[in-house]
Design a binder for these strands. Structure first.
Length: 279
DNA sequence: TTGTGTTTTATTGCCTCC
DNA sequence: GGAGGCAATAAAACACAA
């Protein structure tokens, strides 16, 4: 290791004192006078700082022996060396904190981007579920007479089953429909004047017209309805052609065009595969 | 030259450790 | 209780634009 004195010998006038009081610029008298002056801040020379920096790199803590030795080597007061190390540690800490902050900031930005993406995806899926729920209202259940469909129930079931089983939207909705059917069938029966024939109670009908936290009814395909009846019903429809979501014999659902729904909402031509999309 | 912001050196006060 | 570390801060030195 090269000592400071070795370095000094190579550059005898480079170091020790403030530039304005350097040996090149002042005489011996002024030089002595300067050092007898009461405390005045003296900036360290570049080579002194370089030497201290190297020492700091080796160990940023200063033992008493090392302090004295460095002070001797640099021609400084031990206290000056100690103060320099103290301030240097403070600068090092500040820089470290800044670096840590940058790392955390980048990490945060990355996580935030991920979170925003997930949020957007969640909203999209939510909208999709609502859309699909609404579409379900337009479907007819071929296998049964009347199906009650509860939006809240579907939503709850969706969350529950998504969390536990990671299943598709279609599956969740299918299950919900079947569950609701089983649970609510009796009440629907009581609501409906005659559940064996196509009929909508006032309550059920109005609940559809005002679909807020109310039950929805799926009517079976009205293949047995006469042409006259169909025409009459058609007069009440908003649009002439609709897709119907019908339950088939094997329990699956099919999506078929139909004119038989009472609920006159036009439906985009989504295939059933849309329902089974993995989320 | 001067005003202003930044950097560096030094002080102070508090805290911890032995 | 003394030594040493740290945070906060003062003050001198420096850099630089107007």
């Amino acid at each position: 290791m090269v000592s400071f004195q070795d370095a000094k010998r190579k550059n005898p006038y480079d170091g020790f004192f403030m530039r304005s009081y350097d040996e090149e610029e002042i005489g011996d008298e002024e030089y002595d006078e300067y050092f007898q002056q009461p405390e005045k801040k003296r900036r360290l020379k570049a080579d002194q700082i370089q030497f201290l920096e190297k020492s700091f790199e080796t160990d940023n803590k200063l033992e008493p022996e090392r302090k004295v030795q460095l002070a001797k080597e640099l021609g400084l007061q031990p206290r000056q060396v100690a103060i320099w190390f103290q301030n240097r540690r403070a600068r090092w800490k500040t820089k470290t904190l800044e670096k840590d902050y940058d790392v955390l900031q980048n990490s945060y930005n990355s996580l935030k981007a991920d979170y925003d993406n997930l949020l957007a995806e969640k909203e999209k899926l939510k909208a999709e579920v609502l859309d699909l729920t609404d579409k379900l209202l337009l479907k007819e259940d071929k296998g049964s007479k009347t199906v009650v469909f509860d939006k809240q129930k579907v939503s709850a079931a969706f969350q529950q089953e998504r969390v536990s089983n990671d299943i598709s939207v279609g599956e969740v909705l299918s299950n919900s429909v079947m569950d609701c059917k089983q649970e609510d069938h009796n009440s629907v029966k009581s609501d409906a004047v005659d559940s064996d024939s196509p009929h909508y109670s006032d309550e059920v009908y109005s609940s559809f017209m005002e679909p807020v936290d109310r039950s929805y009814v799926f009517e079976p395909a009205q293949s047995d309805i006469s042409q006259d009846e169909e025409d009459d019903m058609g007069n009440n429809l908003f649009l002439p052609s609709y897709h119907v979501f019908s339950k088939t014999e094997d329990g699956s659902y099919s999506d078929q065009p139909s004119n038989s729904s009472y609920f006159g909402f036009p439906v985009e031509d989504h295939t059933f595969g849309f329902w089974g999309t993995e989320l």
